[in-house]
């Protein structure tokens, strides 16, 4: 600002004005490049490990790259591309079931846990005794920070058949419900959603509670003075204030759930019935990377992945439209001085 003023006032000598103007344009160039120097590291990493791989995955999805021809097949040559993989996917007789499973899984887990439960915990724990609230949140963070293998093992113990299983032993048994079967076999979906939901809830819980804590205390005090009930305070003061984290969590967690498979793999591995709990990401993993006999078809697996990515992008775009993304990323105030 200072410098600009000086040059505007200027007029000390033609030469110095010229020099100053030169410098100014250089610094302007610098100013224009500055954002990109800040972005450079992220751009390099994202290009290397997201964009290039993405292009490759897209190409691979048209090839027959697998464990036998890896290192031999020239997958980058168009002569080796075909639509066969996609034909295979859409003629697969389990395709509708897998798609349906995925949608049900994402919708239910998101609604009940990643958003619903998260909001409930955040609201309750920020409105009760601080220490108790903290204890609850700490408890809900445990599923996320526990090694997946151990976490799933814990759920299998919960769902186990009588007399080993905890739910059967202490809940269903005394109530006389069921005959002590392995609950993962009798109601696999309930557990798939519970297992993922308990991990997913913590993400929203943290964002929501920190957003609620950030609301100035005067707001709720004022509404209490006005005689509003807690419910009304929540409904009319708190909820509108956490609109943005709410939208962010919904979008981000939809995508997270779409691409998650590890817990399901360890829990039911798509079973117990044929493709009963198999979701799209799990199929992609099964085809591309592993199976009991090393069923490793990278090309075919990539095609499954590409379809999933398309679904994900469509959902992301819809969310961004619905949630008026443009407003969220309003232009920065400080740029030119």
């Amino acid at each position: 600002m200072k410098r600009k003023k000086q040059s505007e006032e200027g007029g000390i000598s033609p030469l110095s004005t010229f020099l100053k103007a030169k410098k100014w344009s250089f610094s302007r160039l610098q100013g224009r490049l500055a954002p990109y120097t800040f972005l450079a590291p992220a751009l390099i990493v994202i290009t290397l490990f997201f964009f290039i791989p993405l292009v490759i995955v897209f190409i691979l999805s048209f090839t027959k790259l697998d464990i036998t021809n890896f290192g031999i097949l020239e997958w980058w040559r168009p002569a080796n591309w075909s639509l066969d993989n996609y034909v295979k996917i859409f003629t697969n007789r389990f395709f509708p079931r897998i798609l349906g499973n995925t949608l049900v899984y994402v919708a239910l887990t998101l609604a009940f846990f990643n958003v619903g439960m998260a909001l409930l915990i955040a609201l309750i724990t920020t409105h009760i005794n601080r220490r108790v609230g903290f204890a609850f949140r700490a408890l809900w963070l445990l599923p996320r920070i526990t090694p997946v293998v151990v976490y799933i093992m814990m759920w299998k113990a919960l769902a186990g058949p009588a007399p080993m299983g905890i739910i059967n032993n202490y809940l269903l048994g005394p109530l006389g419900i069921g005959s002590g079967e392995y609950l993962l076999n009798t109601s696999p979906w309930v557990f798939v959603i519970l297992v993922n939901g308990f991990i997913g809830a913590s993400f929203g819980m943290i964002l929501f509670s920190s957003a609620i804590e950030a609301i100035p205390k005067e707001y709720s005090t004022a509404s209490k003075v006005d005689g509003a009930t807690t419910w009304q305070t929540i409904r009319y003061i708190v909820l509108p204030m956490i609109k943005w984290p709410f939208l962010f969590v919904t979008t981000y967690q939809t995508l997270s759930l779409l691409t998650s498979f590890e817990q399901i793999m360890l829990l039911t591995d798509g079973g117990p019935g044929l493709y009963q709990t198999e979701v799209w990401a799990l199929t992609a993993y099964h085809r591309a990377l592993t199976s009991y006999f090393g069923n490793i078809q990278w090309g075919y697996g990539s095609a499954w992945a590409v379809v999933l990515v398309v679904i994900g992008i469509i959902m992301a775009i819809i969310y961004l439209r619905v949630f008026k993304f443009g407003e969220l990323v309003q232009e920065p105030k400080i740029d030119r001085l």
């Binding site: 464990i67 290192g71 990377l289 592993t290 199976s291 006999f293 090393g294 069923n295």
Partner: peptide, 15 residues
């Protein structure tokens, strides 16, 4: 490790 990763490790390592 599991068989799938064990196999891909060899193939990728060979590459």
């Amino acid at each position: 490790m599991e068989w799938g990763p064990f196999l891909s490790e060899f193939v990728l390592g060979y590459g």
